[in-house]
Amino acid sequence: MAFIRILTAVAASFIGILMIVCPALAQFGGAAEPDLSGSWRSPLQEDAGPRTRGPLPADYSGLPLNDAGKALALSTSIARYSAIDRQCAMYPPQYLVLGPFGMKVWADLDPSTGSTIAYHIGAWEDRTEAVIWMDGRPHPSANAPHTRAGFETGQWRGNTLTTHTSHIKMGMIRRNGAQVSDETTLTSHYIRNGNLLTVLVFVEDPVYLSEPLPVSKDFQLNDARTVSGTGPPCSPSYEGTDPNSVAHYLPGTNPLTDELYKTHGVPKEAARGGAETMYPEYRKKLKDAYVRPEKCLSDCGLAERLRELGGPRAFEDH
């Protein structure tokens, strides 16, 4: 009997130790949630051109713009963004997937439980720091300010961190005048597969989009070289924009609406965008209207155009 009592006591002690140790182990072992922290480089394996040098003027193909969105895009002159008051305005949070840069992510941990309170996505050129709140806090009221980063909350589901962003400012979805309003919300999926991360963002705007716009971008964990977590300071200066006017095109006067036709042979109708231009079936509709250029007029065509326009030599060999 004494042996059984000793065995029972040892077993009870072992179970007790396990009960204490296991939750702590769970923070570090396989049962813990994935982590987003690290330096993620941007390999730019898709849409490298539009993400770096920028899109062609007035190319809104593939964007689900409604009539208001098309009108706004065509009225927008890029010169407006050179105005003193706008130079440091930064891009909205969707620029994380629309722009060329990597990202540095770090976590705020609850010191008593080890759980993640928030992830920070560091700032970079033209993008401010974003915070993903993981502690279940509610989004602010409609009267709260809208910021450059917006207000983002998230939750892990398996290897995917799904977030919802509200309270963002009006801003671009393509760097040629296509914009979404301050009523825009984002649903983002940060899908981690080992050292690879795919970020898939659905942009929804009841004002300028007729359907959600999906945008994705891949990142690669880069331990060897740390991605910066802070953006450079911004000091505006005169860039040639008339301070006494707001640059824009009156309806029907945008001179750049045929750029996509000139360089790619794509009809103007397609360049104006709209939900149907997002889908493969749209190619059938374009079949008769599309005329393939006789020679390369794509990126090389852009260089030709820039030469014609006296553009910077830096673009000629791009």
């Binding site: 440091c88 305005a89 930064m90 401010t128 720091e129 910021t147 450059r148 953006g231 911004c234 000091s235």
Partner: peptide
Amino acid sequence: IGLAISSIPIVSRE
């Protein structure tokens, strides 16, 4: 606009 000051030069402070 003339009275107001943006978060410049450290824009990230919002």
